[in-house]
Amino acid sequence: MISIKNLHASIGEKEILRGINLEIKAGEIHAVMGPNGSGKSTLASVLAGRTDYEVTQGEVIFNGKNLLDLSPEDRAREGLFLAFQYPVEIPGVSNINFLKTAVNEIRAYKGQEDMPAKDFLALVKEKQKLVELDGKLANRSVNEGFSGGEKKRNEIFQMAMLNPKLAILDETDSGLDIDALRIVASGVNALKSKDNAYIVITHYQRLLDYIVPDFVHILYNGKIVKSGGKELALELEAKGYDEIKEKFESLES
């Protein structure tokens, strides 16, 4: 699905990703954990194509294509989805109009005709249920005045509508109460299939109780310093990041 090799990225003079290697196959869920400032969100942003970051080395192959050569919109059209940590409010653009434009631009990229309005509305109805999103929210401006939980549910709703191959959930659990967390996780689980994959970025084990990963990677100081199965997350939860910090700081100095 995606193959990340020796990925380095900087913002200004500061190097944040310092050689990431990650291989993800269809059907897998990978959790990326790590302390604040370790580069988790940078990884998500670089993959989605945010231009604030400069990729200085490495390559990313996504379904046979060189991802880093693609514009952000083409990455999305190829099937990459980023659930934002901080979804952006867009006053005046209705959720429905936004999604219709997105769905149809992706279809146009694939050489397909616009989705008939009736099918589109049926799809909206079906996918809204998945994240228990109120129908009224669909007609409101994108994320405007949404609570934190509604914004995150809206991200998962958009994911459901666009049906990506690879979804990156960037701290989707932050700011969620336990009920919202459960709704978001069950949405993700319902959408999981043998044909798609997930990168779940999180600080906490909590989300991983609901979205069970096949692999857990610990990102520290711009590198993946440890990988393992789902038990690694539990271990981290019990011990914290201090042990890892100490070990790698002494190693680097």
Binding site: A48, G49, R50, T51, S71, P72, E73, R75, A76, R77, F81, L82, F84, P87, V88, I90, F98, L99, T101, A102, E105, I106, Y109, V142, Q158, L162
Partner: peptide, 14 residues
């Protein structure tokens, strides 16, 4: 906002 829309497959002009 432009990036958010781009990230959903919507091109820069749209």
């Amino acid at each position: 906002a432009v990036f958010y829309l781009n990230a959903r497959g919507i091109g820069r002009e749209s």
